[in-house]
């Protein structure tokens, strides 16, 4: 029982990270109907920027107050990663808008390779470590050696990850539901031409969507860095594929779906590793995806395409 409890906590933590990345996939898909395969690598770039900023602040500038350092890291990483996201859209996707459907998909894959190799060349192929910054936690259920039960721990890091994710998701949902920008995004999702005839600057709205997705991915990157303590140029690939799976599982194009899908993929992975074998956790996650898609082709929360005749 305690073991399950602990695995649930671990799963939620991992799922939060997937969920944050999945939002970027689902929003871009919603608005221009394209899978941005470079998004996972934007996440990777985000964690590298976070690492660089962190090291500059602590070793070069000598900051020691951790919350302040983390805040600056958060802001800088979001800014720079957003700039990346914006540039990628501007250079690689916008010129292809209106061309055939596969073209942006292929550039996205190309962009992903470019980003990976850029980081590999500039940062080296080896993993970059970061010593654990936030340690400790609280014990929810104390362990009992005699009864053979283990203690259920909730580390501060996990609390931060779940808390930040929850806050961001709520803020983000509000942004989409309530602000003029969110409304413009939803209108572009439905009919770009009509939106532009009503005075919505569609190109700018799409750019901002990429910027928002990249900012969320960079937050995920920071949390990944702090949680696992290592980054390399290749982390974006698997995280990206998982997050994409999460977005599809939840129903691509649906914001709550992306969050739900992320949490589910995280939970499936950790529970499978906890009870069966670690080696096959990816198989489990993707099998669930396949099964869900067979019975619910538009995902858990996705709206089926209804054609009015």
């Amino acid at each position: 029982m305690e073991y399950l409890f602990q695995q649930l906590i671990n799963g939620l933590t991992l799922g939060s990270i997937y969920g944050l990345i999945a939002i970027g996939y689902t929003m871009v898909y919603g608005i221009i109907g394209m899978i941005n395969f470079a998004h996972g690598d934007v996440f990777m770039v985000g964690s590298f920027i976070a690492l660089a900023v962190f090291l500059i602040l602590t070793t070069v500038l000598g900051f020691t107050f951790l919350p302040l350092v983390l805040l600056i890291v958060l802001i800088m990483s979001m800014l720079f990663t957003s700039a990346w996201g914006w540039t990628v859209e501007r250079l690689a996707y916008r010129p292809l808008r209106g061309s055939f459907r596969l073209a942006p998909l292929i550039t996205a894959i190309g962009m992903s390779i470019v980003l990976q190799n850029f980081v590999q060349i500039t940062q080296g192929a080896r993993v970059k470590p970061l010593a654990p910054q936030i340690s400790g936690g609280i014990t929810l259920i104390p362990g009992n050696a005699e009864a053979g039960t283990i203690a259920v721990q909730l580390s501060y890091m996990q609390m931060i990850i779940i808390g930040v994710t929850f806050t961001l998701m709520v803020g983000f949902s509000l942004l989409i539901a309530k602000t003029p920008l969110g409304r413009a995004q939803r209108s572009c999702e439905q009919d770009q031409k009509m939106a532009s005839l009503l005075g919505v600057n569609v190109d700018r709205t799409i750019s901002l969507t990429f910027v928002m997705g990249a900012a969320l991915a960079s937050v995920a990157g920071i949390m990944f860095l702090l949680l696992y303590g290592v980054v390399d140029f290749y982390i974006g690939f698997l995280a990206g594929v998982k997050a994409f799976t999460a977005a599809v599982l939840g129903g691509i194009g649906s914001l709550p779906g992306a969050m739900l899908g992320g949490l589910l993929i995280g939970l499936i992975e950790t529970l499978w590793s906890g009870y069966f074998t670690v080696e096959y956790k990816d198989v489990a996650a993707f099998s669930i995806l396949a099964i869900v898609l067979i019975f619910m082709p538009s995902g858990l929360l996705g709206k089926p395409e209804v054609e009015k005749v």
């Binding site: 003029p180 939803r186 209108s187 439905q190 009919d191 939106a195 005075g199």
Partner: peptide, 19 residues
């Protein structure tokens, strides 16, 4: 915008001043 409410359809049309 079929998926948005009547009110939201009218608000999208006032996007620029609101933005």
């Amino acid at each position: 915008f079929a998926g948005m409410t009547v009110l939201e359809n009218l608000l999208v049309a006032q996007h620029n001043p609101l933005m």
